[in-house]
């Protein structure tokens, strides 16, 4: 360590600093989150490659059948269901585990004493997963095209992406709620234990018709089911009126998940 005559002025310490705008703070937070994401390539394996590999596997087996919505190839409708699986995994696991690890390592306390409001930091964690989500859906789309089972217009694809991104909000909040209380390892375990059963029971991996009847009844109450139905809306074209109901369900679930996350975060660690 050296000692340097730094141009410190009484004015800088004694006068109020101009607060940066919320957008500037969010930009700085998102930039740092993205740098961390892309400097940890191992995370890409679980978040992107796994769901895409599942999609490729099932598309290769069933993708050519024309039993999808509106007579579309199953491989195209699976963009919505497997896309939902991939997006919910990324948006729930990445921010939740990140929050838990930062809390464990003491970094969250550093954030709390900084001028950045903590909700902005949490929002940045969710926003930083968006490139993952685009990557997941993009890779699945490329796979479907390669397998010759892709029948979707650009507008539909963009609507599908938007539905998945908006619909994944409650899952991100669940991830943050768990990450606000549990350790990093426990958060990983808890969220994985949530994702896979919810994906299967919500009909993201297999059509509900292939599952036992009682699971179909249960699925109506699961947010994963409503996420996949919301995502299928753009593919159904004119038959998309049900999307409002699914969106409303997800919005309600987001309110509940947000309240739980807020309580989990604010409850003092005594």
């Amino acid at each position: 360590m050296t000692t340097v005559d730094t141009p410190v002025t009484a004015a800088t310490a004694a006068t109020a600093t101009r607060a940066p705008s919320t957008l500037a703070l969010l930009g700085a937070e998102v930039r740092d989150e993205l740098k961390q994401v892309y400097r940890e390539p191992a995370a890409l394996f679980f978040s992107v490659l796994m769901p895409v590999a599942f999609f490729a596997f099932f598309s290769a087996m069933f993708g050519g059948e024309t039993a999808g919505v509106g007579g579309l190839p199953v491989g195209t409708t699976m963009l919505a269901t497997f896309g939902a699986y991939g997006v919910l995994g990324a948006t729930m696991l990445t921010p939740g585990i990140g929050l838990a690890e930062e809390r464990e390592r003491g970094w969250l306390d550093v954030v709390k004493v900084s001028p950045v409001p903590v909700p902005l930091t949490l929002l940045a964690k969710v926003v930083a997963t968006l490139p993952y989500c685009v990557g997941i859906l993009g890779a699945m789309t490329a796979t479907a095209a390669a397998l010759g089972v892709l029948r979707i217009g650009v507008g539909q694809w963009l609507l599908l992406l938007a539905a998945l991104l908006v619909g994944s909000l409650p899952f991100a909040l669940i991830g943050l709620a768990v990450g606000a209380r549990a350790s990093g390892n426990a958060t990983t375990a808890v969220l994985n234990a949530f994702v896979i059963p919810m994906a299967i029971a919500g009909g993201l991996w297999f059509p509900l018709e292939m599952l036992p009847g009682w699971m179909g009844s249960v699925a109506q109450f699961l947010p994963t089911y409503h996420l996949s139905r919301l995502a299928l809306g753009p593919l159904e074209g004119g038959a998309a009126t049900g999307s409002i109901g699914h969106a409303a369900y997800l919005l309600g679930f987001a309110v509940v998940a947000g309240a739980v996350a807020a309580v989990a975060y604010r409850r003092p660690a005594r």
Partner: peptide, 14 residues
């Protein structure tokens, strides 16, 4: 907190 700097115990950076 714009006016406050802190060096806390047991902090690991990203």
């Amino acid at each position: 907190r714009l006016r406050l700097g802190a060096v806390l115990q047991d902090t690991a950076f990203p």
